[in-house]
Nucleic acid binder design. Sequence first.
DNA 1: TTTTGTCTATCTAACGTTAGATAGGCGTTG
DNA 2: CAACGCCTATCTAACGTTAGATAGACAAAA
Lengths: 167, 167
Amino acid sequence: MNETAEAILDAAEERIRGAGYSGFSYRDVAADVGVKASSVHYHFPAKEKLAAAVARRYTDRFLEAVDQRQAAGADIVAAWRQVFREALHRDARMCLCGAMAATSHDLAEEVRVEVRRFFLLGIERLMQGGLERDAAVHVIATLEGAMLAANVLDDHSLFDSGTAALI
Amino acid sequence: MNETAEAILDAAEERIRGAGYSGFSYRDVAADVGVKASSVHYHFPAKEKLAAAVARRYTDRFLEAVDQRQAAGADIVAAWRQVFREALHRDARMCLCGAMAATSHDLAEEVRVEVRRFFLLGIERLMQGGLERDAAVHVIATLEGAMLAANVLDDHSLFDSGTAALI
DNA sequence: TTTTGTCTATCTAACGTTAGATAGGCGTTG
DNA sequence: CAACGCCTATCTAACGTTAGATAGACAAAA
């Protein structure tokens, strides 16, 4: 994975988090990076491959960030909340997998698998942390929904409001 | 509002709830209804007008359904939960405003206003029903997020799991 | 020499949108 | 009554633009 490929993933992630799967294009991503669209195709031959790669990296990084918070002594629910909160505040964008999940009928199978992986691993990890299934689903749902509301209303404080009850 | 215009709104609503704003097209909607794309333009001159009209009707109907549940004696949180639940089970689709909120950077102002209206009125009504602001945001966030998760994982029981703690 | 990475140039398909024509219904006017 | 003009609703056809994707040239590096 070279520098350009990483820059393409970065740009695609930002675009998808703002406008969803069908709201981003090779041309836009290429312009963000400073190359031609055909160069993006060189690194990621098709749109669904690119989106799937973005989702996989996003999930991996997300889980790693949660692990770090837990290793630093945070409660598992607090850790998940903090990582969601940081993703919202740092980027002022929706959760990547939340943004794509919202248009799930529009996703190629390869992409949907990666989006599902985010949600499934989230629930799984929270259950491994001691939560009942219902509680685990509740945490993920609330975090995604609060991020959604905070984003569309352009009021990040809504995330804190909406998730205060979790901890 | 004649029969065709209503059919166009119905088709557009279903398409947007499955694929988001930029995932639906005049041609698709026209084909669903059984007319040509130019006829859709006759009733709704531009895509953003159509999406805004769909969102307004959706919100109005949603609030009315909640009112009916409350009039029948339901607790306000239970009423909201029931209407979300029915929208998920009946249509097997995302919440229309949730689907568009997820791609909020991609929305024309006219559409975003309508999407925001859904969230703002939801929070407002819950507060009028006696909830604190944090609790109202929590309810809306959890319902949207649970619908999102249930949809993308294609498991409607997740909605009940994820929202059980609300009531 | 082969591989890597980017370019130019192009393709087909689809997009939202518009123009112009048509057909039928409905009043109003001669 | 009949003729005219207007409104509604749809059609065909095309507009310019953008989409994802591909082929082939070219330079640099291994």
